[in-house]
Nucleic acid binder design. Structure first.
Length: 204
DNA sequence: CCCGTGATTTAT
DNA sequence: TAAATCACGGGG
C-alpha cells in the first residue's frame, strides 16, 4: 500500500531548506512490489552555479549533469571513481541547477534485500552509511538518473515519514561537506546536515 | 594510510 | 587525443 508522497512544492524549496527538511523522511525503493525503506539521516546541499563543489558550478551543463536542470523532485544519479553511484534529489526549479546529495539512511524495511546487495556489510550501521553504500543497498544506478519521484508508480519515492520521532527538527547537526576539499572557499561552508547521534551517518 | 577503477571532464 | 580528476569505500 502506497502512502501519499510529498508534493512538488516540497521539492522546489532551495537546496539548504530541502536538505534539512529531508532529514527524517522515508526514502522508499520498490523492487518487484517489495518496499525497501530507509530513514534519511544525512544530506548535503549543492548550490549550483556559484558553488565550486557542485557539478553545475559556473553553469556547466554536460551529458552527466543534465538532470540537475530538471524541476525539483527529479533524481540526479552520477557514477564516480570507476565503481560508485551517488544519488541526489533535484531542488528548486529547472532554471536553477541545485540538488541535495543523499549521504546516509537508517534501514527500516527490506533489510535482508539490502544486505544481499551489500555482502561486505555485516553490521546494520554499515549498510547505508555513505552515498554510494546507499545506492548499492537500494540498487540505484544510472538507469534511474532523471526520473521524476512524483510520477505515478515511480520506483523511488519520498514519503513524509514519522517526524514526531525525536523532534528531528531540533536535532540537526550542521558541518562542512565531505570530500570537497578542492572547492576553495566553498569547501568550508556548512552545507552538510545530519541527525545528532544517529549511528547510521557516514562519519561523526 | 593507500589504492582500485573507469566514466567524465579538462587540457593540449 | 591525452591527461587529470573524482560529492567513495574497503582494507591494512
Amino acid at each position: 500500500m502506497r502512502s501519499m508522497p510529498l508534493d512538488r512544492t516540497f521539492f522546489r524549496q532551495n537546496p539548504v531548506d530541502l536538505a534539512r527538511d529531508l532529514l527524517g523522511r522515508h526514502l522508499v525503493r520498490y523492487i518487484n512490489g517489495q518496499r525497501l525503506t530507509v530513514r534519511i539521516v544525512e544530506t548535503e546541499a549543492y548550490l549550483g552555479v556559484p558553488d565550486l563543489a557542485a557539478h553545475t558550478a559556473g553553469g556547466r551543463r554536460t551529458a552527466r549533469n543534465q538532470s540537475m536542470y530538471l524541476d525539483g523532485g527529479h533524481l540526479y544519479v552520477y557514477f564516480t571513481y570507476g565503481m560508485h553511484y551517488c544519488m541526489n534529489i533535484v531542488a528548486s526549479t529547472a532554471e536553477d541547477p541545485v540538488a541535495v546529495l543523499l549521504r546516509a539512511g537508517e534501514p527500516l524495511e527490506g533489510i535482508e534485500v539490502m544486505q544481499a546487495s551489500r555482502s561486505r556489510a555485516t553490521r546494520l550501521t554499515d549498510l547505508c552509511s555513505g552515498p554510494a553504500k546507499l545506492c548499492q543497498a537500494l540498487q540505484i544506478d544510472r538507469k534511474y538518473d532523471g526520473i521524476d519521484l512524483l510520477a505515478p508508480e515511480s520506483a523511488i519515492v519520498v514519503e513524509p515519514g514519522d517526524l514526531s520521532r525525536s523532534f528531528v527538527k531540533e536535532s540537526i547537526v550542521t558541518r562542512p561537506r565531505i570530500g570537497v576539499g578542492y572547492a576553495k572557499e566553498w569547501a568550508d561552508k556548512p552545507l552538510r546536515f545530519y541527525l545528532r547521534d544517529n549511528p547510521h551517518v557516514s562519519r561523526p
